[in-house]
Amino acid sequence: KLETFPLDVLVNTAAEDLPRGVDPSRKENHLSDEDFKAVFGMTRSAFANLPLWKQQNLKKEKGLF
Rank of each mutant, 00 (worst) to 15 (best):
P24A: 10
N12E: 07
L31A: 01
W53N: 08
R44F: 05
R26D: 04
S32C: 06
V11L: 14
D35E: 09
W53H: 10
S25V: 08
N57V: 13
T43S: 13
L18E: 04
E34R: 08
D17S: 10
E28G: 02
A46F: 09
N29Y: 10
P51I: 01
K60Q: 11
E28V: 04
N57R: 12
T13W: 10
L7F: 09
G21Y: 08
D23C: 10
L64K: 02
K54T: 11
K60H: 08
L18R: 03
K1G: 13
R20M: 15
N29F: 12
E61L: 11
V11H: 05
T43I: 07
V9E: 07
R20L: 15
T13V: 14
L58D: 01
L50F: 05
E61D: 09
V39W: 03
F47R: 00
L31S: 01
D33I: 05
E3L: 12
A48M: 13
L7C: 07
K60W: 11
D17I: 06
K54E: 14
K27G: 03
D33G: 04
G41Y: 04
L31R: 01
D17E: 13
G63L: 06
G41D: 09
N57E: 15
R44C: 04
D8P: 06
H30K: 02
L52S: 09
L50G: 00
H30F: 10
A46V: 13
N49T: 14
L58N: 01
K1S: 12
K59F: 05
D33V: 05
T13N: 08
R44G: 01
M42Q: 02
K1F: 13
G21P: 05
K1C: 15
L18C: 06
P24T: 06
R20E: 15
Q55K: 06
G21N: 10
A48I: 09
E3I: 13
E16P: 08
A46M: 13
L31T: 01
T43K: 06
G41T: 03
N49G: 12
G63C: 08
L7A: 06
R44V: 04
L50W: 01
D35W: 03
G63F: 06
A15D: 15
A48H: 13
R20Q: 14
A48G: 12
E34L: 09
L31H: 01
K37W: 15
N12Q: 08
Q55W: 00
P24I: 08
F5E: 02
S25E: 13
A46L: 09
T4H: 09
G41S: 07
E61Y: 06
M42G: 00
A46R: 08
S25L: 15
K62V: 12
E61R: 08
N49H: 11
N49I: 12
E61N: 08
W53L: 10
V39C: 11
P19E: 04
L10R: 02
L50Q: 04
T4E: 07
P51W: 01
V39D: 00
V9W: 12
V11D: 03
F36W: 03
D17C: 15
K27L: 15
D33R: 02
E61H: 07
A48K: 12
D8M: 11
G63T: 01
R20H: 14
F40M: 07
W53E: 13
E61T: 09
P6V: 02
N12I: 06
V9N: 05
V39S: 04
P19C: 06
Q56I: 14
H30W: 12
K59V: 07
N12P: 04
Q56H: 11
L50N: 00
